Amino acid sequence: MDALTGKHAVVTGASRGIGLAIARALLAQGARVTLMARDAAALEAAAAGLAGGTAWQTLDVTDAAGVAQAFARAGAVDILVNNAGQAASAPFGRTDDALWQRMLDVNLTGAYHCIQAALPGMVDGGWGRIVNVASTAGLTGYRYVAAYCAAKHGLVGLTRALALEVAQRGVTVNAVCPGYTETDIVADAVANIVRTTGRSAEQARAGLAAVNPQGRLVQPDDVAHAVAWLCMPGAAAMNGQAIAVAGGEVM
């Protein structure tokens, strides 16, 4: 379990949920991991619950200057997992400019900022792994989340374009696209469904789980295992892929 020994990984949105599960999976493979997110207290608690080889620092991915400074402090990065994200729902007619821009800033431009900071060192070193945590919303459409879908489609497009640029430089760029996953985002979605439809929380959760042919919500560890695999030296031929982690929802 030491395939990533000597590699330094940065995981954004790492204080909880999918990001924390990814950090744990990379640590298990021997990587040194830096957790990044906005909430210092949550980061400190997350790092305290992980094995050695873990550092943390606050990061707002929408702040280009702050991203550059955080990555400079972190040092050379071999593995970058862009997991930071937000989801907000509204019918298109009630999607205002602020909501639209926030979805793009956090889910797409934030990944761009982090890649800009990490990629040059990977190219200079001749090895790197970039994994963007997108969504099945980056592969298909969903009602009432047009801005989120647009941002995640953009993240998949960024993944594919960049993968071609660095294909001969020892760096791979891939995306994982989780379906509805047991995270705070889904908890917020359940609360919104309850508020707007009058259904119970149990009914709302069951409705989201039913989208998955396996009849369940995806678990953060499901996503983390896929990410860890893409980071392995043996995954060198995986490049430019957008892999659905959704029980067969998208094929």
Rank of each mutant, 00 (worst) to 15 (best):
C149F: 01
A150R: 07
A150V: 02
A151P: 03
K152W: 07
H153N: 03
H153Q: 05
L155D: 02
L155N: 10
L155K: 04
V156P: 10
L158P: 00
L158I: 14
L158M: 15
T159E: 11
R160H: 11
R160L: 01
R160A: 05
A161L: 13
A161F: 05
L162N: 02
L162G: 00
A163Q: 09
A163G: 12
A163T: 11
L164M: 14
L164C: 10
L164K: 15
E165G: 10
V166D: 11
A167D: 09
A167P: 02
Q168L: 06
R169V: 00
R169I: 00
G170R: 08
V171E: 02
T172V: 09
T172Y: 03
V173R: 01
V173P: 01
N174F: 04
A175V: 10
A175D: 02
C177E: 04
C177N: 06
C177Y: 03
P178C: 06
P178F: 02
G179P: 00
Y180K: 02
T181L: 11
E182Q: 15
T183R: 07
T183V: 04
T183A: 04
T183K: 02
D184W: 06
D184T: 12
I185R: 03
I185W: 09
I185N: 01
V186C: 05
V186D: 02
A187L: 14
A187W: 05
A187G: 15
A187Y: 15
A187D: 14
A187E: 14
A189I: 13
A189H: 10
A189E: 13
V190S: 10
V190D: 07
N192F: 07
N192C: 03
I193P: 00
I193A: 11
I193Y: 14
V194F: 07
V194A: 12
R195C: 00
T196N: 09
T197C: 10
T197L: 12
R199H: 04
R199K: 14
R199C: 02
R199W: 09
A201M: 09
A201W: 04
E202W: 05
E202T: 09
Q203I: 13
Q203W: 14
Q203E: 15
A204P: 11
R205P: 03
R205G: 04
R205W: 04
R205A: 01
G207V: 06
G207E: 10
G207W: 06
L208Y: 13
A210F: 01
A210S: 09
V211G: 04
V211H: 13
N212L: 03
P213L: 09
P213Q: 06
P213K: 05
G215P: 13
R216L: 11
R216Y: 07
L217G: 05
L217V: 02
V218I: 15
Q219Y: 05
Q219A: 14
P220H: 02
P220F: 01
D221M: 15
D221S: 09
D222H: 04
A224M: 05
A224G: 02
A224Q: 05
A226G: 07
A226C: 15
V227F: 00
A228M: 03
A228Y: 10
L230G: 12
C231N: 02
M232S: 10
M232A: 11
G234Y: 04
G234W: 00
A235V: 07
A236L: 06
A236T: 09
A236N: 08
M238C: 15
M238L: 14
N239K: 10
N239S: 15
G240P: 09
G240E: 08
G240S: 10
A242K: 06
A242R: 11
